[in-house]
Design a protein around this nucleic acid. Structure first.
Lengths: 343, 343
DNA sequence: TCCATCCTCGCAATCGAATGCAGAACCTAC
DNA sequence: GTAGGTTCTGCATTCGATTGCGAGGATGGA
């Protein structure tokens, strides 16, 4: 029965005994077409599994109906960053975009040259772009944002910069983390992370803020630690061997925190007894380290929803502004409250 | 100087003083156009940042030049699976596809209904589909594979099934893991994982194979453990409390293994002293647990490259077959060789 | 000077869907 | 019976790039 394969709108129209234009309008639900005709055509389409050709439709409507999501899965010295944070964010973005009828074009970028974003934007393959993480590309982002509105960035809000961001208050997050360690009696704090991007830089700022307020800024140190697990571990191991352990560690991310946990364990340093550790992101795995990781939580689901919402509103012509969420401290085993430094 | 904005091929052609067809052929490198003309037009295009309209081009060429990658980021009881394995795979796929000039359309699927794949395939939005993980959708995969060739699946090879797969020999992997535990003197082994999909089922098979060969099948147990970290931890905790600990654990994935490590630590059970643990996947983080996780490694980079290669060859008309890699045992701390069960 | 030949290039149709405008069909009212 | 309205459809064009076929120009040889 399915003999004549229906691939184009005209096929469908012929089958229904109407013209292509009528079929088009019928499928679009245009009320100018008699209801009966509309329903008949819709049914035919369903029966024959007919779907409009997206390329043709988008060409005519001068749009692509897809959004690029750029992940800085950069080759940090050749190693792909595989932070679980990204999958989670990606999953939520995919959901939100699909729900709104958009396709998600995934793009991995190695920000070696600085025109990557302009190229993507000008390619015309997408209606808008979401960048996850600023990395060290703030300049490139600003340059493009100045002339291209449908661009949204997950990351730190930077006053005076052109690109619109959604993210949590990283400085507050850093402060919360340090404050917590101070609250449980730690005094010699260290921040582990490489402030190559503004997010980490702000977390580090917040960390220092708290230390200063508390009057322990002179004993607080910031240690440059890469964000990829293996490099992080090496950096941390070297630091511990050279300078000994602090009694409280704020890590730039949960992955860094986990590397720290391992480096500490290898050296027989007790957590949280000798050193308390606070991570950042509240990745799913964070609750499942031993001891479970105290961390700063960002609401990723809400972040993804907001990114998509703002982007589509921008696409609709609205003028949009940055949004910042409040991070939340989640206390778990690595900063067990009762525990005091063994020293 | 950039006054006349060049958006279409005809704009460019007008600027160059040739016709659109010549411009098209020039950009395509068609040798029928004089080399000088070709170069002049290419330069103009570069100077004005001109890029072809993909929708129009793809419409004309009857293709989409994009590949869908489907992730079973299923709502396992509402929780997004955030296994780091996925990001890594995704990253490599993105690289490989981009390199071949294809876009990567990311699609998250909650396989509640069973027509999801057919819908995607028939939508005409993509030239081919890569599915990562079979989950419990083998039937749906087979049904579509029977009529749609450019479909590739990362997962277990199932003799007699229609869909083409790329993956590692899960049965061998499971056997390697169990064998290793037996080699270091463990006898009461447990497999932690839920064989809802064929991959896990085969790993479990291999596990049992080894136990049988070694004559310890009667003391070996298989414990149904979910794959999401939090559920896994709950399942494992319950099992340990009910039945006590085995002296060797083969986990269905590294995430499960990490949950096991935590559950064991919480109960004061020593690793590898009391229990040796082997994971699966060799996720980046696996090397950074404490103790570092012994695991079965799958070469994800090679897997991704193979998936893309086979898919494009299938697209080119070649008949392709499944490919299976050999997994490799990576011995780390959780099965420290010297350690014997305390018992 | 004229014609054959080789290069280059342009005309026009095509891919599939959307839409402004005009025309067909049908009905009511005078 | 015809004018005036409604309501529904179809024609033809458009989006931007590709390509078969044929035309135009330059060049060389006679």
């Amino acid at each position: 029965m399915d003999r004549p394969s229906i691939n184009t709108l005209s096929d469908l129209a012929r089958l229904a005994g109407v013209s292509a234009s009528t079929a088009s309008r019928a499928l679009a639900g245009n009320p100018v077409i008699a209801r009966a005709t509309r329903e008949r055509i819709a049914e035919l389409a369903r029966d024959h599994g007919f779907q409009l050709n997206h390329a043709a439709r988008n060409l005519r409507l001068r749009r692509t109906q897809s959004i690029a999501v750029v992940l800085p899965l950069g080759h940090e010295t050749g190693q792909p960053v595989s932070d679980p944070f990204f999958v989670t964010m990606l999953g939520h973005l995919a959901d939100a975009l699909t729900e709104r009828g958009y396709d998600l074009l995934l793009s991995r970028v190695i920000p070696a040259d600085d025109k990557w974003l302009a190229r993507l934007v000008d390619s015309g393959r997408v209606d808008g772009v979401i960048v996850i993480g600023q990395s060290d590309q703030v300049a490139a982002l600003d340059r493009v944002a100045a002339r291209y509105r449908p661009l949204l960035v997950w990351g730190a809000h930077l006053p005076g910069h052109a690109h619109v961001t959604v993210g949590s208050d990283n400085r507050l997050g850093g402060r919360l983390a340090a404050q917590h360690l101070l609250d449980i009696g730690r005094r010699r704090l260290a921040f582990f992370g490489l402030p190559s991007g503004p997010e980490i830089a702000q977390r580090q700022q917040g960390f220092m803020d708290a230390c200063t307020t508390f009057g322990v800024a002179d004993t607080a140190v910031t240690v440059p630690v890469h964000l990829a697990a293996d490099l992080a571990h090496a950096n941390i191991a070297e630091y511990l061997d050279r300078h000994g352990a602090p009694d409280g560690i704020v890590a730039a991310s949960d992955v860094v925190a986990m590397s720290a946990l391992r480096a500490l364990a290898e050296r027989g340093i007790g957590v949280p007894g000798d050193v308390a550790v606070v991570g950042y992101d509240n990745v799913t795995l964070a609750a499942h380290t031993s001891p479970p990781l105290t961390t700063i939580s960002q609401d990723i689901a809400r972040g993804a929803a907001t990114l998509v919402d703002l982007l589509l509103r921008s696409l609709a012509g609205e003028t949009i502004g940055s949004v910042m969420f409040e991070p939340r401290l989640i206390v778990r085993g690595t900063s067990g409250c009762g525990a005091a430094p063994s020293e």
